[in-house]
Design a protein around this nucleic acid. Sequence first.
DNA 1: GCCAACGTTGGC
DNA 2: GCCAACGTTGGC
Length: 155
Amino acid sequence: MPAKYWLIKSEPDAFSIDDLAKAKDQTTYWDGVRNYQARNYMRDEMKIGDKVIFYHSNAEPPCAVGICEVVKEGYPDFTAFDPHDKHYDPKSKNDSPTWFMVDVKFVMKFKKAVTLPEIKTNKKLHKMKLIQPGNRLSVMPVTKEEFDEIVKMGS
DNA sequence: GCCAACGTTGGC
DNA sequence: GCCAACGTTGGC
């Protein structure tokens, strides 16, 4: 199975790529996703070694800022079990979790952030889910071509 | 801070 | 099962 390519969004105020680079083992668990489609991607399709674009949403400007990779495949998002956690969800039970997450590890930060306007004006990226109206998925697949193009724009 | 786009929830 | 209300996301 060849590696797949993904894009994950984070608000830099909450968790930025620099936070990931500084994290223990430069690795974090991608918790708090409470969207079924994104959940399915993490639970079923993201595999160890898959490459992931790290995207800053709600930034000025919004931009792709670097790359990380999947180091642990879908497992229950335990933050959903903790009533004190911001992402607590009483629907999710230990024996039948509703929500899943993966672990990602820092790979590199782009020399130059690739901004949303740049992505929108690049013809090769017109098909990206990211720029389709109304798409608010925080985890989404990208093609190898799109991934390579963004890496090229960022270096 | 605003608001459009959506997903989810809950009353019926 | 419909649909209005509500909450969240995320660009601007």
